[in-house]
Design a protein around this nucleic acid. Sequence first.
DNA 1: GTCTATACTGAGATAGAC
DNA 2: GTCTATCTCAGTATAGAC
Lengths: 202, 202
Amino acid sequence: MTTKEKILAAAERLIAEHGYTATSLRQIIGDAGVNLASVHYHFGSKEELLDEMISRKAGPVNRQRLALLEEAERLTAPEPPPLERILDAFLRPVFEAQQRSPEFVRVMGRLHSEGLMPMVLARHFQDVVSRFEAAMLRSLPHLSQTELRWRVELMFGALSRVMWHRPDGLAAPLDAVDVLPRLMSFFGAAFRSPVLPKEEKS
Amino acid sequence: MTTKEKILAAAERLIAEHGYTATSLRQIIGDAGVNLASVHYHFGSKEELLDEMISRKAGPVNRQRLALLEEAERLTAPEPPPLERILDAFLRPVFEAQQRSPEFVRVMGRLHSEGLMPMVLARHFQDVVSRFEAAMLRSLPHLSQTELRWRVELMFGALSRVMWHRPDGLAAPLDAVDVLPRLMSFFGAAFRSPVLPKEEKS
DNA sequence: GTCTATACTGAGATAGAC
DNA sequence: GTCTATCTCAGTATAGAC
């Protein structure tokens, strides 16, 4: 294993365990058995190290997402696929990545919950998200683009919790058979819900 | 203004603007015009400073939440109030707090999105959350406690986004007339959605 | 009881020798 | 490519002046 790979492996392990901010470069290099300065030589900064870590893992997930979405669209063309198929195409690859690389999904959950998505992760997923937003817009004609954006934001916020944090006392490994149907029912209904007028007081 | 109040005011201003981790104690004391050590004299640590900041503001919000919930329950007793009334009782006070103290709501949103809720904020809201969970459980007989917990977690994750982060390009002040109906429709439908069986592949 | 000055530890980053 | 030494800036702790 090269120095770079040793650093990446140790970082993934430690960040999955303790989170990004709580993991110092000195812990990482101690675990990896390399020198502190080598991190900055190979990556430039702690943030860029994180960036490369994500880059290496997010690619396959995003490719599978797009493949599933395109398959769904082919099946129903020229009609848009039903919402549930789109949601499934987006969510399932994350849970399947869990099988291949449990550490990575834990890292992603950590980063979500540490609020690091906007500055670090967005660029690895923005293209895919835009593609899915377009598909959902076709599938949900009662939503304007603005309304859809709001709901997508709500969904991402919600997902960021579920990715690593289980409701109290019910800690369980991320498991597609368990979690996916929950998400599907919850967000399916939520996205289909009507757009209420601005006046409240039901 | 006492030293303590000067620190609290400066901290609230800076944290609302730049977030908790990005705001250093040295910035705060510079803005407040006090000495560095006075922070630890009055509060003990940066985290305890944050804690007191929240304590001072969360009280009124939580009291209003409970008052609205009890009023709703009185109106429909012995039947549980409709879900929308419960959600409204929980959400409205936050948006009304926005009128009284815009900085505070921005701070809360920041903390949510920085992932600091579990360690700092939970204790200021846990009692109220439990009370509301119990009310929702009565109102949603098709949900087990476990299923409800999951959905409440999803809602909190979603809210943490909406509290300060607007969907791209659509930045707007937090406005009850605008946001509340959106949340009500989205979560109303989401909570009422059926519990799907564990086997997926719709 | 309050506040000031100053020092300590550990973080990320960097320059320069090898 | 790698390593040593060092820099700056965090949060924190304490001794001592008022």
